[in-house]
Design a protein around this nucleic acid. Sequence first.
DNA 1: TATTAGCACTCGATTAAATTGAGTGCTAAT
DNA 2: ATTAGCACTCAATTTAATCGAGTGCTAATA
Lengths: 341, 341
Amino acid sequence: MDLSDRKKKILQAIIDEYIGTAEPVGSRAISKKESLGLSSATIRNEMADLEEMGYLIQPHTSAGRVPSDAGYRFYVNSLMQRYQLGVEAISRLQEALEDKVVQLESMIKRAGALTSALTDYTTFVTTPGRVSKIKKIDLVPLGYSSVMLIVVTLAVRSRVINADITAEQCDEIASILNKHLAEHSADEISFAKIEEIQHEIEAKTDLSVQLLINILHFVYETINSMNESDIYINNAKSILQYPEYSDLDKARELFNFLEDKENLKLLASAEDEEGVKAKIGKENGLDILNDCSLVTVNYALGDRKAGKLGVIGPKRMNYAKVFASLDVISKEIDKILKYYL
Amino acid sequence: MDLSDRKKKILQAIIDEYIGTAEPVGSRAISKKESLGLSSATIRNEMADLEEMGYLIQPHTSAGRVPSDAGYRFYVNSLMQRYQLGVEAISRLQEALEDKVVQLESMIKRAGALTSALTDYTTFVTTPGRVSKIKKIDLVPLGYSSVMLIVVTLAVRSRVINADITAEQCDEIASILNKHLAEHSADEISFAKIEEIQHEIEAKTDLSVQLLINILHFVYETINSMNESDIYINNAKSILQYPEYSDLDKARELFNFLEDKENLKLLASAEDEEGVKAKIGKENGLDILNDCSLVTVNYALGDRKAGKLGVIGPKRMNYAKVFASLDVISKEIDKILKYYL
DNA sequence: TATTAGCACTCGATTAAATTGAGTGCTAAT
DNA sequence: ATTAGCACTCAATTTAATCGAGTGCTAATA
């Protein structure tokens, strides 16, 4: 069932061509390539073979050939030329990711944006769920009977609470919270623990119980929300750019699909394999993605898989470049995160 | 130059119809409306008059009429039926805005999202520049020689700084920073002031000067960045929905335009008038928006204009609903902000 | 005098037909 | 085994024919 060397070369030439043009490629176009030096008739014969083997598809009798899912798969697995990001490109990436590292989440978001800038495809990133340990909790009075609750881990989350308490009371509560919660990871903190803390605070201050419950409720909720991983999409508009989505309805459909975070999370929920992986067309298992490929990579926080970075594009995407980009960027993220944790 | 009552009614009927269908409206369609009881011939005569006066346009000889910019303008100024948001709709809005008020910025973002959900048009919001006073500055050691800098105003901004300092040093620096900066508004804080603080810290701690300069640099930059207003766009994809953008190239062009924050800021930079204002077609002064209308409203933080909320849609947008929505939402924002400040 | 019925006319949109051309498969020659 | 040559196919493009919504104008009517 192996392909002859010649067939491989021809298949590769066809796919390379198709990736560039999005038009079915004919035998003549291939025979013109110097490197092969075969007549169109010969190419035609080989193409007929490749079609029979399932690597190519003829949209209609008098058209050229188009790669099938299996064709792309073979291309990705064995044919694709390695693509090297330029040194300057890489160092620009490193700079962009490191230089202004403001915060975990925004760094991750930026990684998604960079990937999409680099490849010009739609991308998504998921932020790490169950993030690192709580470093500090703070209650800052804002005046007008509201306080700002701030929880610091590698990320920072804040929210305003309406509560009429003094600065001293804020400090007191915060210090008790910190005593119990600092250096614990968010997913260790049960509601029971919070109740325990509540009793301690009740004993030490003269706050109204109702108010205290209220505040602790927010604390609990905020901490919990940090456990949830979120997902961001970039450059969705790029799908308008590819001829496979020149049908407005199709484009809109995909748009709507991608806009729903639940759908994206579904996509991002795939296995935790090593390295860059592609899912081509039907392999995605979703009708709406039959004409798309999804290329993803995991990044790690310390030693466990933390989140995922992915590219969504037409099946005839520039796999080589996408693979290289995801590889480089995910490794940069790993490096930066390792450094933090 | 005044329009007869009958002409007004006809113009209104035409625009209402056109808003609903996006198709040039013919005399027959209007004459069928019970409320007028005129024959199509009469309507035709009136339409011819209205066209001469510049309120209507005939795309070609054998088509119905379409409102001109002037027509829409007249409609918005004098004809449009007031639209009342339902009580439940309003209270749902209030809830959505208040209930989970997490933070100034996310509330503002949410307001934009709500407007777009309500109207189904593309919306934008700008966050307040020169935000309220600094409430607190915090330095939290994260371990691995990095610290998180946190600046609290009505918003919270944070960033990671690589600096090898102890928890005690953090506290000390933070307390000096707070002593000098808390309760000052961000735009009062000059670089000179920061340098002054630097000298005080130098005297009181044994930190390396270079490190200290580095940290204070980030403090200054972060505070400064809080002075800048940002802009967010929602539901850009909705432009794919309207027949006026069934031309993919036009849609893409507008998409690209709207994606660039600089462009949006330009749009949002308009005058600080009271109340909801519309700019129709050419009134926007940008070719790319010739087929769009922009409806905006300012919201206030305390007593000065703080930011802007806007809707971008086709010229034949549902002005009544958009005006009502913007009115209600901006007032809700005002209410919430007044409450905070 | 204002309104309306009636009719010829216009012109974009739709449908149908004709043409083109890229590409194939097969056969026979090299 | 390869290739030149040729008949054939079929989507895409071009051209022509038809349709119909809507108009403006005129003459009749209230």
